[in-house]
Design a protein around this nucleic acid. Structure first.
Lengths: 224, 224
DNA sequence: CAATTTTTTAACGTATACATTAATAAATTT
DNA sequence: AAATTTATTAATGTATACGTTAAAAAATTG
């Protein structure tokens, strides 16, 4: 039995299933879908589907447009800039908080191992594996920050830009510089230097934002 | 006919009505309420009420606890710290963005008038009026930042700490220093000095956070 | 034929009936 | 009487019926 099928309610299963369909590109950005279609596709009635769409709308993944169906969100370069501005700021805060927490090496081990994985991935020229380690690094960073609100917001926003990241992953040069940033950030956190941690990550994210937006523009990806 | 009654759907009216009941303290923090009770109170069926509770849950105002009713969120001092950390960071970013936008005096007029109102309120020893002007100032600041995502998050978080602010409004000394901060921030934005704008507002919010948390602790307000 | 009005259609919003299931109470056992 | 099992209750989760209403299609008018 799949994980989804174990979920208590159809409503929760609908949220997970719709997210999965969106991330898989089966419900592409900008496309419209009637409640009844989605209900049929998910094998349930409209009620739990409606509830799921409200939740996903509040997370910015789609928009409920009465009588026109739900529209899967399509982000412009400007939307991307807005989201990255917030991600930059909140992750930098998390980095600063993590440094102030004075974690032991033991407690920072997952952060460390993510940096090692990234370095190995770059050496092996494996972008997919690098992207997974990069995501793990950022997740762990935010977790170490210890602020649950930041975790929730960052998680939502990462969902929203997931497609754009996937699209541009193979357009980028191998992230050599990025790995140096991660290592420097790790050191700052281990030393408890919150000011440095904040600044290193802020620059790191700002550069990533500019890179992403330039790539989208260069490749004529108006909305993703 | 009231504004709420004009709203298209019962579902939207339920969201507004429940928010109003929460802010008015009629649904106090920590209290539980069955869907059917709320439906009866709002004069509609459970369906739109359920939809409203899902929306409000995603905004952090309540928690849906199956078979135990919805529980109105009660924030601890630590929750408050988390929320203020995020508010501090995002409003500071908004201040920085506003400065970078190089607005004209005309465009900054509402920000200016809010500072004047605050000064008049302090002179008149009128805390309620000061609080309204302060809220207007912060709203306008975030609006001038121009980032819609920041506006949404800040608005949600302000809703969550609204009760705590109201509770502590009359425990505070008259906000003399606060007005000086606002004036300095206005000047920094008018000059286009984004670094100063960010730092001034960051300190301002950090001090407000410490003040609020101290007041809650001193007065034994464990959860609000 | 264009513009307007009327009619039709169908998607949504809501109420309601019912199935499900967690929590409680009652009964039974030890 | 305590512990366990069984039965009951009631709140939720879901499906469905139906009224409402926006959009589309058809009919009418100028």
């Amino acid at each position: 039995m799949s994980v989804e099928a174990k979920s208590k309610s159809h409503s929760i299963r609908a949220v997970n299933a719709l997210r999965a369909l969106i991330f898989a590109g089966e419900l592409p950005p900008g496309s419209d879908h009637l409640e009844s279609e989605l209900a049929k596709k998910l094998g349930m009635s409209r009620t739990p589907v409606r509830e799921a769409t409200l939740v996903l709308e509040s997370q910015g993944l789609l928009e409920v447009r009465p009588r026109k169906g739900v529209r899967i969100s399509a982000l412009s370069a400007d939307d991307m800039r807005e989201i990255y501005e917030v991600l930059t700021e909140l992750e930098s805060l998390a980095a600063s908080l993590a440094a102030d927490a004075h974690y032991s090496e033991q407690e920072l081990s997952r952060l460390k191992s993510a940096t090692l994985e990234m370095e190995a991935s770059v050496a092996a020229n494996d972008r997919e594996s690098w992207a997974r380690a990069d995501a793990a690094f950022h997740d762990e960073l935010v977790r170490l920050g210890g602020n649950k609100r930041i975790q929730t917001i960052v998680s939502n926003f990462n969902d929203q830009v997931r497609r754009a990241r996937a699209l541009t992953l193979h357009m980028r040069p191998m992230p050599q510089k990025s790995n140096e940033d991660h290592r420097a950030l790790y050191e700052a956190i281990a030393k408890g230097d919150s000011k440095a941690a904040r600044e290193i990550h802020w620059r790191h994210r700002t550069e990533a934002k500019d890179m992403l937006i330039n790539l989208l523009n260069q490749h004529g990806l108006r909305r993703v």
